[in-house]
Design a protein around this nucleic acid. Structure first.
Length: 410
RNA sequence: GCUAAGGUAGGGUAGCUGGACAUCCUAUAGGACUGUGGAUCCUUUGACCCGGGUUCGAGUCCCGGCCUUGGCCCCA
C-alpha cells in the first residue's frame, strides 16, 4: 500500500466542512476591512525566497530544478511573492493597497502537531501606507480574523526601535546574537553574550525593557527616542478600537527585514507549536527591483488554528433523502430536482435497496427528511414528507414539501 | 538535524515471558423484512507498517528503513 508523503494530510468531507467554514468566516472579515484576494504562483524562482531570507533557507524548502534547468521552489510563505507581485503589477496602483491571501505553502521540516510540510496560511499585506493608523489597522484585522475563528489566543505587540536603540553601540553580529537570545528568553545565553563583549551593563536595562508593562516603563529605559510618538499613537489607535493586546518589546522575530512594529499571536491550548500568527512592518520591494515602499503584513497558521479550536462543527444544512421504488423513479427525479433547485441537498438511493433499507440508510447517513414517493404518490402526483427526527409524516404536494424544508432550514 | 515513545481490518482494541485458522467492539455489504426506520439475530468484507535476521516456528525477539506523536533545533 502506498503512503502519502511525510507531513501531508488527506482531508475527508467532515474535516473539510470545518476548514471551509472557518476559511469562509476569515474571508468575510478580510472583505469587510476592504482587503481583496491575491493569488500568486505555487512555485517561484528560488531567488525570490533567498533574496528575502538568505541562502540558508534552501535546505528547508522544496527546492528543485525544472526540466529547463530553472531553480524553482514550492513557496514556503507568501509575503515575498506578494511583494514581487506588487513590483511586477501594482506599483502605480492607488495607495494604500489592501490584499489578503489564503494559500498553501510548503516547507521541508520535521512534522509535528500543528506543523506540516504542506500547510495553509491566511494573511494580509497593507502596502503604501506608513502611519500609526496603518499599523493599527493590520493588527486589528489580524485580531478579528483570529477572533472569528473561535480560537483562544493572545496578541503580543512590540517595536524594534527601542531594542535597536539600546544596542546601537554593538555591531550587527552582536546585535543579532543578543536579540536572538532575548527572543527565545534564554537568559543564560543573553547574559553570556553581553558579558563576552564587555557590555554586561546592558543586562539590567534590557531586562527592564522586555518586561516593561507600560510604554512609560519603556521610555524610562530608553529615554526619548524618535519612534516614541509613532509607537504611542499606534497603541492609542488600538485602544480606540478595543483591541486587547500585551506589549512586548522583546519580540525580535529573528528577521532582518522588519523595520518597525512587530506582533505575534499565540494560542492558549497548543504545545510547543503555539504561535499562530506573526507579522510586522517591513520593506521588501527594493529586493525585487521595485521602488521602496512601506508595507505591513502578517500570516496566520491556518492549520494551527484548526488544531487549536478542535471539534466545532458548522451548522448542518438539511439533507433530504428521496425514497422511491423502481416504478416511481421518474417522479422521484422530479422531486429531487425541485429540492436542489431550491438549494436543498437531495440524495437518492443508487444501490437498488428496498424501501425500508433506503429509509434506514437515510437515517444512518444523517438525512433530516425523507421524501417518500411510491406507487400511490406517483399516481396521485403527491409526495410524503417525513421528518426523520420526529418521525411525523404527511402527504402533500411537492411544492409545499420543498417550502417546508426550506423554511425549516432558515 | 537531535531525542524519547509508538505503529495489529476504515475507526477503536486484545494478544506481545515466541506455538495451530490472530480477539472483541464498531463500521461496510447482504439477509431475516416485496412500501415505513437507528433494535435484534445471522452471514459477508476487512489488519499484524516495510525489509532483513535469529528460530523447527515470529504479530511477539534483534537490526535497518518508513510513518506518527511528545520535547528540542528551526520557524522566512
Amino acid at each position: 500500500m502506498l503512503q502519502k508523503p511525510r507531513g501531508t494530510r488527506d482531508f475527508l468531507p467532515a474535516e473539510m466542512a470545518q476548514r471551509r467554514y472557518i476559511e469562509r468566516r476569515m474571508r468575510n472579515v478580510a472583505a469587510t476591512f476592504g482587503y481583496g484576494e491575491i493569488v500568486t504562483p505555487m512555485f517561484e524562482e528560488q531567488e525570490l525566497f533567498t533574496a528575502k531570507s538568505g541562502k540558508g533557507i534552501i535546505g528547508e524548502m522544496y527546492a528543485f530544478e525544472d526540466k529547463g534547468g530553472r531553480k524553482i521552489a514550492l513557496r514556503p510563505e507568501i509575503t515575498a511573492a506578494v511583494s514581487r507581485a506588487y513590483v511586477n503589477e501594482a506599483q502605480v496602483a492607488p495607495k494604500p493597497i489592501r490584499w489578503f491571501y489564503f494559500a498553501e505553502c510548503f516547507r521541508y521540516e520535521r512534522p509535528q502537531k500543528g506543523r506540516y510540510r504542506q500547510f495553509w496560511q491566511f494573511g494580509a499585506e497593507l502596502i503604501g501606507a506608513d502611519s500609526p493608523a496603518a499599523d493599527a489597522e493590520v493588527i486589528a484585522l489580524s485580531y478579528e480574523l483570529l477572533r472569528c475563528s473561535g480560537v483562544q489566543f493572545i496578541l503580543k505587540i512590540g517595536h524594534l526601535a527601542p531594542m535597536r536603540h539600546m544596542l546601537a553601540g554593538l555591531n550587527t553580529v552582536e546585535q543579532k546574537r543578543v536579540m536572538a537570545a532575548l527572543d527565545k528568553r534564554d537568559m543564560n545565553l543573553f547574559e553570556n553574550s553581553l558579558a563576552s563583549i564587555g557590555r554586561a551593563d546592558l543586562c539590567e536595562p534590557l531586562v527592564r525593557l522586555i518586561t516593561a508593562q507600560t510604554l512609560d516603563d519603556v521610555w524610562a529605559v530608553t529615554g526619548d527616542i524618535p519612534e516614541k510618538p509613532r509607537i504611542e499613537e499606534t497603541f492609542s489607535c488600538l485602544k480606540d478600537q478595543n483591541i486587547p493586546f500585551a506589549q512586548n518589546f522583546g519580540i525580535a522575530r529573528g528577521l532582518d527585514y522588519y523595520t518597525g512594529m512587530v506582533f505575534e499571536g499565540f494560542a492558549d491550548n497548543l504545545g510547543a507549536e503555539n504561535q499562530i500568527l506573526g507579522g510586522g512592518v517591513y520593506r521588501l520591494a527594493h529586493l525585487f527591483g521595485g521602488k521602496d515602499v512601506p508595507s505591513c503584513g502578517f500570516a496566520i497558521g491556518f492549520d494551527r488554528v484548526m488544531v487549536s479550536f478542535g471539534e466545532l462543527r458548522p451548522e448542518a444544512a438539511p439533507i433530504v433523502a428521496v425514497v422511491c421504488t423502481p416504478a416511481s423513479r421518474s417522479a422521484a427525479y422530479t422531486a429531487a430536482a425541485a429540492f436542489r433547485a431550491a438549494g436543498v441537498t437531495a440524495v437518492m438511493d443508487l444501490m437498488d435497496r428496498s424501501f425500508g433499507a433506503q429509509l434506514s440508510s437515510a437515517i444512518k447517513s444523517g438525512a433530516s427528511y425523507a421524501v417518500l414517493i411510491g406507487a400511490n404518490e406517483a399516481t396521485s402526483g403527491t409526495v410524503t414528507l417525513k421528518n426523520l427526527a420526529s418521525a411525523s409524516q404527511k402527504k402533500t404536494s411537492l411544492g409545499e414539501a420543498v417550502d417546508e424544508v426550506v423554511n425549516d432550514s432558515c
